[in-house]
Design a protein around this nucleic acid. Structure first.
Lengths: 202, 202
DNA sequence: AAAACAAATTGACTGCGGTCGATTTTCCGG
DNA sequence: CCGGAAAATCGACCGCAGTCAATTTGTTTT
């Protein structure tokens, strides 16, 4: 095949993402120009655009890899004996930690993935599903233990909690919830969703 | 006073927003340049920027007015006898209708208001709260009728439903839910939230 | 009514995201 | 080892969002 080329591509791609992490983190996303980024990565401006179609896509690629890794890592290692609330909290807070470490990365990624310009082909849709499915074992476990209704579709359950996660992130980005209160807020909402908003029918 | 100036300002502001509605709707947000928009509105390019700080803010201003109007209009005229699900559905679907009529307007507005670059001062935070409060009477009514728990804060209830609304919009923008299935999806999620995700304790 | 002041308007200008054709690098058959 | 095809790289270039100093328009004072 073309081993040299392949390796070069991988190296350069990494160099670009590394440069992006460095510069976006230090100076912010909008304050960093592609030319600057290209210089830092040791490539020409045009080359950046042969690896990524847009500036946002650089963030997207990084976040997707990062989040995917975190989720599967955690979902696999979460204590399956602990309550649903605890397990979800561990995962959502790990993701939140990434975001707090680089506010801009998270913002751009969320803006583009939650409300995309066009559904970027089937690929991203697949990605999104996969993302959900990592959590399925946790929900199934909760169903088995009687913490969650078994008549609900996993997709709907996953969507529900995902929505609450988005809400908390939105409130954080809007300054409505300070960083230290985020776990508490998330906990409250999870419990609300589990217990239901209607009066208990005991 | 300065009656002539004041009136001019109001007229021009409206002219700019009208031009934006016309051009963004016809050609899309990114396909419309500010120069084009200024020409359509009959003002210079610089003038646009004395009324709005950024291109996105034009969309923001329009959407905020539009949504605010719709919400208060509907919240006041919704039949207070009907079920919570029905009332919420009427309001959320009315908002959704606006969005379907101009996908770009909704997208830009949601991206910026849900995950803002910086919490744009207290003004927007106030706005957001006000936005929630319009729905409070509906939730209070539901509490009175025993459809919702009375021990929950209205803000948390409002946030919960708002989160589900966002989720559905996100799925729609991502092509996961076609337009005609949106009401059904919304209904399902509302019921899920009301009934709770845990098994009924009868 | 004219001068003096303040607010509003403007379009040339700047900087950056993204494109594209020219150039270099890598690969492979002879 | 060479020639030529294919892939990768590059930076000059384009169009547009956003700025700003100069100019126009409206208001107040004398």
């Amino acid at each position: 095949m073309h081993p040299v080329r392949e390796q070069n591509k991988i190296n350069k791609r990494k160099a670009i993402i590394d440069a992006a992490i460095k510069l976006f983190s230090r100076n912010g996303y909008e304050q960093t120009s592609i030319e600057e980024l290209a210089r830092e990565a040791g490539v020409g401006k045009g080359t950046v655009y042969s690896y990524f179609q847009t500036k946002k896509e650089i963030v997207h690629a990084f976040c997707e890899a990062e989040l995917d890794f975190t989720r599967s890592e955690l979902a696999a290692h979460t204590n399956p004996e602990s309550s649903l609330q605890e397990q979800l909290l561990v995962i959502f807070m790990a993701e939140f930690k990434h975001i707090t470490e680089n506010r801009d990365f998270g913002r751009i990624y969320l803006q583009e993935s939650v409300f995309p310009r066009e559904h970027h082909g089937e690929a991203d849709l697949e990605m999104q599903n996969q993302y959900f499915e990592i959590l399925y074992p946790i929900y199934r476990g909760a169903q088995r233990r009687g913490e969650l209704r078994s008549d609900l579709e996993l997709l709907h359950i996953a969507g529900h909690f995902w929505a609450l996660h988005l809400l908390v992130l939105s409130c954080w980005y809007n300054g409505m919830i300070p960083t230290e209160e985020v776990p508490e807020a998330m906990k409250t909402l999870i419990n609300q969703a589990v217990d239901g908003l209607k009066p208990s029918t005991i």
